[in-house]
Design a protein around this nucleic acid. Structure first.
Length: 569
RNA sequence: CGGGGUGUGGCGCAGUUAGGUUAGCGCGCGUGCUUUGGGAGCACGAGGUCGGCGGUUCGAAUCCGCCCACCCCGACCA
């Protein structure tokens, strides 16, 4: 039995400034957490309670897959990180510190190195494998830009699992089990997820999937096909070039004076044509050389795709102060016709385009009526542009939709990425030493927590799904000076606790309106109002999610709450 | 890191343009009385290095310089 007056639930009447997404706002207003520093929060009692509910669901589903929980330290010695090379690759995102002896440590951002090192030391035989180890623990990443509360924090909690196998088939089985477990966790947390193909990037591995909750608060962009279920992170989706780029007719090439018009919008407006007629040029610097990337005007360059094509991520958009180093370029007016001394990449969709507008490689001039093959050759042509709404699905004839998503989980088939450099081998049946095949599986529990709030609220506050509600029932004592009301609440509370239903009693001596509003804001699934109707032996019961209200008799109240809870989503 | 913005009691803000009594307001907090079914009333009260440091000035929340923190937009991630 928790008393509102005793538990720290500092609700806020007004919306705090500095929060852009509603989940973040409600986490603060409902008194679940408080900011400490940028991307660092303290969890208050009710917030912690909800987090533990989430983490228990995760724990139960992990255990069902046969994964085994352990706990690794937060302080990682640098050695294994240096062995994998990530001590340097991770860069400033890693929180580093030095002990009194001058030894280097980091605060663990993830734990592949540590766990792999440990498993390797155990010198496993084929009899010990496969094994899947996980922990649920605070992680530290010095994010370049923390934001949106728990959606991107610098200190956050994550379940991280690491599986070790004798071969890829065995890895595939575990991967599939984890995939299914992630779906089940999301379902139990009342989160609808879309699973999308994701980039393993330069981190390595062959296959990875992200578990996305579609939400405008999300920071990722995903392309989805409703028809066949294809989904991919926009950073690597494989939309088919639709050849909507350019016009139909064959035209004569012609130079047009376009003073100061350097953006696609400017040019298309000036020429009176849509952006799909204009070729966009984005300039990069790669290893000291200029690179011109040509894409249809209505698309953007996908940095991730470009990195994959270039096989490096050490490039950046050309800065103004770098222009003088590349005199053959006329920024704002760069086009593929007659361009010299510059590396180029074309988006696949440019192939076969006719009657397009592009820069003339001459200050204040564009060319119109340009045609690929006739006037220039789009080579090499790669998939380097992001998809747009309506692009053709790569695996069926459906159309792609573009949505924002919150990534709550990400699973990887790592293969030999860590076991090889760290020298982790097992002794096979025939006595030979074989490299261990690995998988890694992350899931952000604090991120899930805020995502639940984001997905389940109305204009009055949070509507907790019962599985993750910090507490299932709130008893609102309208007049806490009234002993009869207090007693009724305490009796009911004891009865519910016998049924193992936890209760929060609002016993504060505040006016009823405040308590009603706070109850809706905090959003526990069942509200029971104890007011002067008790003189008639009656209470009010309300389901927060649906706002369904009903009168119940005090003597049946325990059962009524129990039933309402079954009924609640 | 690049660009933009904000820092004034716990929360939300005014005051800064044009330097000048004792830095205000609403909410919240404390005490007392009244009140108790959707953010009550009256009275009294507590709470501030005006983000920090330095400068200009007879005088700085206000002007100048440097620094810090936080938030927003971009490149990264559970």
């Amino acid at each position: 039995m928790l008393k509102f007056s005793r538990v720290t639930v500092p609700t806020l009447r007004e919306k705090p400034v500095d929060c852009e997404v509603v989940g973040h706002e409600l986490m603060l207003r409902a008194g679940l957490m408080r900011p400490v520093s940028s991307g660092i929060y303290m969890m208050l009692p009710l917030g912690l309670s909800a987090l533990l509910k989430v983490e228990n669901i995760v724990r139960e589903e992990m255990n069902k897959t046969g994964a085994i929980e352990l706990e690794l330290p937060s302080l990682h010695p640098s050695e294994s990180w240096q062995a994998s090379g990530r001590w340097f690759e991770y860069g400033p995102e890693m929180m580093r510190l030095t002990d009194r002896h001058g030894r280097d440590f980091c605060l663990g951002p993830t734990a592949e190195e540590l766990i792999t090192h440990y498993v390797g030391k155990a010198a496993p035989s084929y009899r010990d494998l496969p094994v899947n180890l996980y922990q649920i623990k605070t992680k530290f990443r010095d994010e370049p830009r923390p934001r949106f509360g728990l959606l991107r924090a610098r200190e956050f909690r994550m379940k991280d699992a690491y599986s070790f196998h004798r071969g890829t088939e065995e890895l595939d089985e575990t991967y599939e089990r984890m995939y299914q477990a992630y779906l089940e966790i999301a379902r139990r947390c009342s989160l609808e997820v879309k699973v999308v193909e994701a980039s393993t990037g330069l981190i390595g591995g062959d296959v990875s999937h992200e578990f996305m909750v579609l939400s405008d608060a999300g920071e990722d962009t995903v392309s989805l096909c409703e028809k066949c279920g294809y989904g991919a992170n926009a950073e690597l989706e494989r939309h088919r070039p639709t050849l909507r780029f350019g016009g139909e007719e064959e035209e004569e090439i012609e130079e047009v004076h376009t003073p100061g018009l350097t953006s696609i919008d400017d040019v298309s407006e000036f020429m009176g044509v849509p952006a799909r007629m204009v070729l966009k040029c984005v300039l990069y610097v790669v290893g000291g050389d200029a690179l011109a990337v040509f894409i249809p005007g209505y698309r953007e360059v996908s940095t991730k795709k470009l990195a994959a094509v270039l096989k490096t991520d050490s490039f950046h958009p050309m800065r103004e102060d770098e222009f003088p180093f590349f005199p053959s370029l006329t920024p704002g007016f760069v086009g593929p016709v007659g361009l010299r001394d510059t590396k180029v990449i074309f988006d696949e969709e440019v192939v076969g385009a006719r009657n397009i507008i592009c820069g003339a490689n001459k200050e204040d001039y564009h060319l119109k009526g340009v045609e690929e093959k006739r006037d220039f050759r789009a080579e090499p042509a790669m998939n380097v542009a992001s998809s747009v709404e309506g692009d053709e699905c790569p695996s069926c004839d459906g159309a792609l939709t573009i949505s924002r998503g919150i990534e709550i989980g990400h699973i990887f088939k790592l293969g030999l990425k860590y076991s090889k450099p760290l020298g982790v081998e097992f002794t096979d049946r025939d006595g030979s030493l074989m490299p261990v095949v690995m998988g890694t599986y992350g899931m952000g529990t604090t991120r899930i927590l805020q995502t639940v709030v984001e997905q389940h609220h109305d204009d009055r506050g949070i509507r907790w799904p019962k599985a993750v509600a910090p507490i299932p029932v709130e008893l609102i004592v309208l007049n806490s000076e009234n002993n009869e009301q207090i007693e009724t609440a305490e009796n009911l509370s004891r009865e519910l606790e016998k049924k193992e239903i936890e209760v929060l009693i609002d016993d504060r001596s505040l006016s009823p309106g405040i308590k009603f509003n706070d109850a809706d804001l905090v959003g526990l699934p069942i509200q029971v109002v104890i007011g002067n109707k008790i003189s008639r032996g009656m209470l009010d019961l309300k389901l927060r999610y649906t706002s369904i209200k009903r009168d119940v008799e005090i003597r049946n109240a325990g059962g009524a709450v129990e039933n309402a809870l079954k009924e609640a989503r």
